[in-house]
Nucleic acid binder design. Structure first.
Lengths: 171, 171
DNA sequence: GGCCCTTGCTTTCATTCAGAACTAACCCCC
DNA sequence: GGGGGTTAGTTCTGAATGAAAGCAAGGGCC
């Protein structure tokens, strides 16, 4: 696989100094996709779980009882995704969905026995994957990545906020 | 908690200490999605470019002439995505696609005048967005993020490699 | 109580996407 | 110079996605 056109041309002067491979949004997207891909191969595929399903399982497993909206907040998924993932899990006997006695609109999600078992199997494997990933970095670097992601995330939320204000002002 | 302790292969309290919000694959996915979202609002929406289109524009703008496969390597997109993005850009008069005289199968992509203009507009705005993102982090933290992503990416590729070998061995 | 607006969730629909099949052209080797 | 196998790109198909509509049920307000 030799690069022909690729190395034949030299960068354009001004704007040409832009390097996609150093562009943070691009790098985040690529690495995140790669990680997700590996995750999917190890879990999704092995246990028949999609990522949204795994997320629902993870938080319901942790909190025992949750409303779909709470799941949405905890997993950063919109309600449509939660609804679909929950329906699928219910269909496979991993999740039980009941009416919220305190609110006729609300639902309550909890794991079935089978779901608890699945949870018990999947969590250690998730930890294992994380360890495998962490092997490529020193402890310090891993911690730095964690902190940097926090800050970047916070910055995104701040920028989102500004955008919304701007949108409101435009109305 | 009325479940018989026996049927849970792994006790729930142990697995229950799993916090999705600290799980690196999850955090990467969330932050990456947030960044992409902002990027889309600023560029895609403003210039009518999707992210694949922007990537193609970015690398063709940089190298002047590229084959679709080279674009694929440079942008980490599969050939299907490249093909669609290129078709769309051609349709809007931003990109020109011609036969590679040296290889009848190959195509050559280059920007039209209009495409160059678009490139010139979009690159500075991309830089601006990156600066906005970087404002939330110190210079050191940003650099650490960059290094950590590199290593994580490398680790992913290493793990991918292992998987492939395992798959081959299984055949 | 009855009206209306809001909330919680599901369903629908139109788009996007990844993987597999397909076409065309090249290369190697006989 | 004509198969057999490979490579470059495009097209097709089934699944995933997100936005918006739909559907109940709650909570003021008169």
């Amino acid at each position: 696989m030799k690069a022909r056109a690729k190395d034949a041309a030299l960068p354009r002067d001004q704007a040409g100094t832009f390097h996609l491979e150093d562009f943070m949004p691009y790098r985040l997207a690529v690495t995140s996709a790669r990680v997700s891909r590996i995750f999917m191969r190890n879990y999704a595929e092995k246990f028949g779980l999609t990522i949204p399903e795994w997320r629902v399982l993870a938080v319901v497993g942790r909190y025992e009882v949750l409303s779909p909206s709470a799941v949405g907040e905890l997993t950063a998924m919109d309600k449509v995704k939660v609804s679909r993932a929950a329906a699928s899990l219910v269909g496979r006997g991993l999740l039980r969905q009941s009416q919220d006695p305190a609110d006729g609109r609300g639902r309550l999600l909890r794991l079935t026995r089978k779901g608890v078992t699945m949870f018990g199997h999947v969590v250690p494997m998730a930890r294992g994957l994380e360890e495998q990933l962490a092997e490529g970095l020193s402890r310090t670097e891993w911690a730095a990545l964690s902190r940097a992601l926090n800050k970047l995330d916070a910055q995104c939320r701040a920028l989102d906020g500004e955008d919304e204000e701007a949108a409101e002002a435009a109305d």
